[in-house]
Amino acid sequence: DIIVVALYDYEAIHHEDLSFQKGDQMVVLEESGEWWKARSLATRKEGYIPSNYVARVDS
């Protein structure tokens, strides 16, 4: 799995977006363009995230 960590807070604009806080970790489910589908490890919610707001966690 690709794990990313939030670099900034993000408040969902559309209902399919995923809100998150700086430091939150998410599993990337699908990478396509600038918006990635991800699942929050904390809340288990899924939605689209702006890929420029996150960084990959080296395992």
Rank of each mutant, 00 (worst) to 15 (best):
E11R: 11
S19R: 05
W35I: 08
I13Q: 13
E11C: 13
I3R: 07
A55Y: 09
G23R: 02
F20Y: 01
I2H: 12
I49Y: 00
Y10F: 14
I13Y: 09
D24C: 04
Q21H: 13
Y10M: 03
G23K: 02
V54F: 13
I3C: 07
V5W: 06
E11G: 06
S19Q: 06
V4P: 00
V4W: 14
V54W: 02
V4Y: 12
S40M: 15
R56V: 11
Y48G: 03
W36H: 04
N52C: 14
E34D: 13
G23H: 04
Y10C: 05
D17F: 15
I2F: 15
V54N: 00
E34Q: 12
V57I: 14
V28Y: 02
V54T: 04
Y53A: 10
R56D: 04
W35V: 07
Q25Y: 15
P50Q: 06
E16I: 08
E30P: 03
A38E: 01
R56H: 09
Y53H: 09
D17V: 09
Y8G: 04
H14P: 02
E11V: 15
D9E: 05
H14R: 13
A55L: 10
V28D: 00
Q21T: 11
D58R: 09
D17G: 15
M26A: 01
A38P: 00
F20W: 01
E31L: 15
D1G: 14
Q25E: 11
Y8P: 00
E46R: 04
K22C: 09
E30Q: 10
Y8S: 06
H14A: 09
E11Q: 13
R39I: 10
L41K: 06
K37N: 05
D24N: 04
I49W: 01
L18Q: 01
S32A: 11
E16C: 15
H14Y: 10
L18R: 01
L29E: 04
V54G: 01
A12E: 03
S32D: 11
W36K: 06
V28M: 04
I3T: 06
I2T: 11
V27S: 06
A6D: 00
G23Y: 05
A38G: 04
V57P: 07
A12F: 02
A6I: 02
V57F: 09
D58Q: 11
L7N: 03
R39D: 00
M26W: 02
V5R: 06
A42E: 11
V5L: 07
L41A: 05
S19M: 04
Q21A: 11
I3Q: 05
D24Q: 07
Y10E: 00
D58S: 12
I49E: 01
D24E: 14
A6L: 01
R56G: 06
Y48D: 03
Y8Q: 10
I13G: 08
Q25M: 15
E16T: 13
W36F: 12
